[in-house]
Structure formats: structure tokens, C-alpha cells
Computed example of a mutant assay.
Amino acid sequence: MVKALGEYLLFLRAMFGNTVPFRMFLSRISKECIQVGIDSLFIVCIISIFIGGATCIQLASQLQSPFIGKSFIGVAVRNMTISELAPTVIGIVFTGKIGSSMASELGSMRISEQIDALEIMGVNANNYLVLPKIIATVFMYPLLVIIAMFLSIYGGFLACKYLTSVPSQAYIDGLRNAFDSYSVHIALYKSLAYGFIISSIACYKGFTTRGGALDVGKSSTDAVTNSCIAILIADLFLVYVLLGHCT
């Protein structure tokens, strides 16, 4: 465990030595932004809408107390979406799509000796291949989380309006009730941390792949598994640090 952590930290450190030309580096970042952000937009939108809708229906079915107003559903969907569902659940799904893709891509390049060829030519493969992926993910993932927040809340509104007996105006009133913008800040802090965790672990697993085609699949699986565990640990830590003063 300690050895793996040390190798991971050395892997991150190696990204900042012998940098490639800035124009080439910027081109790589642009390409990765499209792959990480634009190509993930569809699945993020679909998941967000249905998560918001399902959350609203479940709350509406369980809210039977006459002492709790119907607007509480809007408050609950808003708070759950912003604080946990958008950054964390989307992060786990994002790991399965982007994290496995990064690990597979770098793993295939490693076993086909493309990375070795770059290193022989004097190119810092960590800087040229890995750093653009991490920067692109850290930049694009918060944007995806913002979209997920909006669509999840809107999905809850659609479910409230067409699939429950709760008045849609009550849902809207709940959204407006006692809104704290700090919760959005927390979600964005989480998304920055998750973006780095997902991309760095996936790239590390792919970059250090050894063996053949079967080992590429194993690296991809390990990247997803380790990233999901790291996200959940980071979620607990960040919530404690950012909201510990409220308890």
C-alpha cells in the first residue's frame, strides 16, 4: 500500500519535468477536453434527469405527514442534488466511462511500446500524455456537474408535475426556500477534487500496465475500482472539512 502510494506520487511528480512545446501541449488539452467533456455530455444528461425524477417521486410517495409542507420535496431534491447526487453519483458514472477509457488507452500504448518509443526520443511521456488528460478532466468535470445539477432539479420538476399529485408550484417554492449558495461552492470543490482523482488514478494504472492485452483490461478495472473507493473517501473527508463547523 505504501509502496503503491509512493509510486503514484513519483508518477505525478514526473509530469512536470522536460515539458513539451506549449503549442503541442495546448493542442493535446483541447483534444482531451472534447473527449472528456463533450463525449460524456449525453450520458450525464440522461442520468441526471432520471435521478432527479426518481428522487422526487420517492420523496412524494413517502411524505405523508400533514405537518410537513409539500414544498419540502423541492428543498430535499435541491439539497440532495447539489450536495451529493450531482458531484458524487455522476463522478462514479464518469469514472466508469472516462476513467476506464484513459486507463485502456495508456495501457494499450504501454504494451504496444508506443510510450517507450516516446521516451527513447526524449519526450516526457508523463507530461505529453498524462498531464493534458488531468488538466482537461479537472476543467471539464465541474462544468458537467453544473449541468447535472440543473438537469437533475429540472427532472424532479417534470416528475413532480406529471407523475405525482404534488403541485408543481409547491416544488418551485421549495427550490426557492432558504437557498444557501455555499452548497454550490461545496459541490464545485468536490468536482475539482473528483476530477483530479479520477484522471490521475486512471492514468497511473494505464501508464504502469505491464504484460499483454489481458493486463490492459485488468488495469482498466483496477482504475475504476480504485477511483470509486477514492471518491467515496474524499467525499467523506471533504464533507467533514467543509461542513464540520455546522455540526
Rank of each mutant, 00 (worst) to 15 (best):
I115D: 06
E32R: 01
L5H: 02
M140H: 05
I135D: 09
G99I: 13
A230N: 02
C228H: 03
A14D: 05
I186N: 09
T19C: 03
F72R: 15
F11W: 00
F50G: 06
A60I: 13
G156I: 01
A4Q: 00
P167C: 11
E105D: 15
K97C: 11
D173L: 15
L118R: 07
S168D: 09
I57D: 09
E105T: 08
V75S: 08
L131V: 03
L192Y: 13
S227W: 00
V184G: 04
A234Q: 05
F25W: 00
L158R: 01
I111P: 04
L242T: 06
G99W: 14
S183W: 15
I153P: 07
I47Y: 12
L26F: 07
M1D: 04
M109E: 06
S30Y: 10
L232A: 11
V75I: 05
E32F: 04
I68F: 13
C228T: 15
S152H: 05
S219M: 01
Y8T: 05
L242P: 00
G122Q: 02
V2L: 12
I82F: 02
V166L: 15
I233T: 03
F42M: 09
V224C: 08
L163K: 11
A202N: 01
M24Q: 11
A54I: 15
S104E: 03
D39T: 02
G37Q: 04
Y141D: 10
S152C: 15
E105H: 07
V239N: 03
G52A: 14
P132N: 07
I197A: 07
I43T: 06
S61W: 09
F139W: 15
Y128L: 14
M1C: 03
A4R: 03
F67T: 03
L242N: 08
E113P: 00
F11L: 02
S181F: 15
F237V: 12
R176M: 13
A103D: 02
L232Q: 05
F50I: 12
G69I: 10
H185F: 14
Y154H: 09
I115H: 07
A86L: 05
S71K: 14
A223S: 12
V123A: 06
I153A: 12
D235I: 07
Y240N: 04
E105S: 10
D235L: 10
K133F: 09
L158Y: 00
M1Q: 04
Q114Y: 15
I34T: 09
G122Y: 04
Q169V: 10
S30P: 03
A178V: 08
S71D: 14
V93F: 12
Y182L: 15
R78S: 06
P142M: 10
K190D: 03
K97G: 06
V20N: 00
G6E: 11
S220G: 02
L131C: 07
I146Y: 09
I98R: 05
I92K: 03
V166M: 11
G195H: 10
G17Q: 00
